[in-house]
Design a binder for these strands. Structure first.
Lengths: 262, 262
DNA sequence: CCAAAAGTGTTACCATTACACCCATGC
DNA sequence: GCATGGGTGTAATGGTAACACTTTTGG
């Protein structure tokens, strides 16, 4: 359970929140990175809570919500080259801490429970964030732990945070024809199977290796390099990179990259 | 300017808000109906304000945000057969009443202005709503006026409400392949040109009459009736109706009706 | 008869799909 | 050599776009 330092941090946190933040409102970030052939999501565990949660935070009274999302993420990662997009507001009336809150209030020796903000209801807006795994460093806030989890091996999550992740994936799936998603997730040099894995994970189904390759190259956003990468017992796959200028053009125009049937 | 009754209503409204509603948060509805061959949006004008606004409201502490949107609309329309979907949270830090608020506070003879909720910042979540124009009755709240406006002839709107409407149309455009949008907007009997006009308005471009018809009929959701409708100097168009059961099936499966290139 | 708008049908085109075939590598 | 995975090419399919032709109605 919580130690004394955690308790103090928690007090400070909630006191600050009372005055500086918009009440009853939070931001949650579903941060995706690609590592070791798999899509992973960044999760956070506060010492004072048992379950893992999405890295989140609150919005200052004079701060744009988008900026709050960036700030919340910046605190925990070095935040270079990220793609961030709001995808949904979670507004169910039961979105409020339950047993967990009691535990914490016990630990903090707070008596006026029902009126405490920790037990009050929160609206929360979700952002999905695509980062280049290798380019960011994880920096947990004091009193919390940060780690990457595979999408199909999530730990038990706080409140409706699993639903939020699912909704994020669904939203990315809807947008996938318009976002050069690989560019946001992969390092400057990558292989076609890596790119394909990302699309397969997001779409939740296998894609034909050969057709995928042709489709991707036909966008004109991908440059074949004359290099391969040794990867174990099989033919070494070619390396590719993105045509950054054309990609930025495409993103601004909201260019359709693929016809995707879901 | 405001008369005494309006002022009283306004006072009551804001007093109530203080205690019962989630602060700094509102819901705005972009309600679309189809009438006289055109898509129209429902707007609202409070006597106390000069500009038109989107019909909106606030969320009770123990109320789901989706339910609040429904309630807000129900108050002003009879609300039968509507399709309602959250599309975006507007969270810019400058979303707060400006000159207008001063006018009102003048009229209400309120002195402590900067701390008054009327001048404070609001986050607002947008819902787009598709209604059958003929099936609803407009019922303005006391102290307000309600009316339909063509999308290309909007009056001057309050704050960023024009941007909210634009974003709503953009969102519907994104969803148009998955929503049988005509079913939500048209009466039980309709002509193909009417259905096509809706799609053309949403997509912002003309569609080929003949290809459109074939595509729509191929969904299997539309039943040709053996009736026509006299419509002036030309060939009378056929009437169609929707296959409600198949439509509900399709909606539940999130079936893709059209491939739409935007 | 003509103009305008609606209904039907045909053809060319293009993207997607499915699959056959070849190449490289480790065991 | 063989299994495995990556790269290239091709034919069949199916949806879309473009357009010609017919029908109906009022002037």
């Amino acid at each position: 359970m919580a130690n004394r330092q955690d308790e103090i941090l928690f007090h400070e946190f909630y006191d600050k929140q009372l005055s500086e933040y918009i009440p009853h409102f939070s931001v949650d970030c579903v941060t995706l990175g690609f590592h070791a052939g798999m899509l992973k999501v960044l999760l956070c565990k506060m010492n004072i809570l048992q379950k893992w949660i999405l890295p989140g935070g609150f919005v200052y009274h004079d701060e744009c919500v988008d900026d709050a999302a960036i700030r919340i993420l910046k605190k925990r990662t070095s935040l270079k080259d990220v793609y961030l997009k709001q995808f949904h507001l979670f507004g169910h009336k039961d979105r409020r801490p339950r047993e967990e809150a009691d535990e914490i209030l016990d630990a903090l020796r707070i008596e006026d429970r029902e009126n405490h903000r920790l037990k009050s209801r929160y609206l929360s807006v979700g952002y999905y964030v695509l980062v280049k795994y290798g380019k960011i460093q994880i920096r947990p806030n004091v009193g919390e732990e940060l780690d990457w989890f595979c999408l199909n091996e999530l730990p038990e999550l706080y409140l409706d945070h699993e639903e939020i992740i699912k909704k994020a994936i669904k939203s990315i799936r809807n947008d996938v024809g318009y976002i050069p998603i690989g560019y946001e997730l992969l390092p400057s040099k990558f292989t076609m199977p890596e790119l394909r894995t990302i699309y397969e994970t997001i779409l939740g189904r296998e894609l034909d290796r050969r057709n995928f390759q042709r489709k991707m190259l036909s966008t004109g956003l991908i440059i074949p390099l004359n290099e391969t990468r040794r990867e174990g017992a099989h033919k070494s796959p070619n390396l590719y990179s993105f045509n950054k200028e054309r990609y930025i053009e495409a993103r601004e125009q909201g260019m359709q990259l693929m016809h995707v049937i879901l």
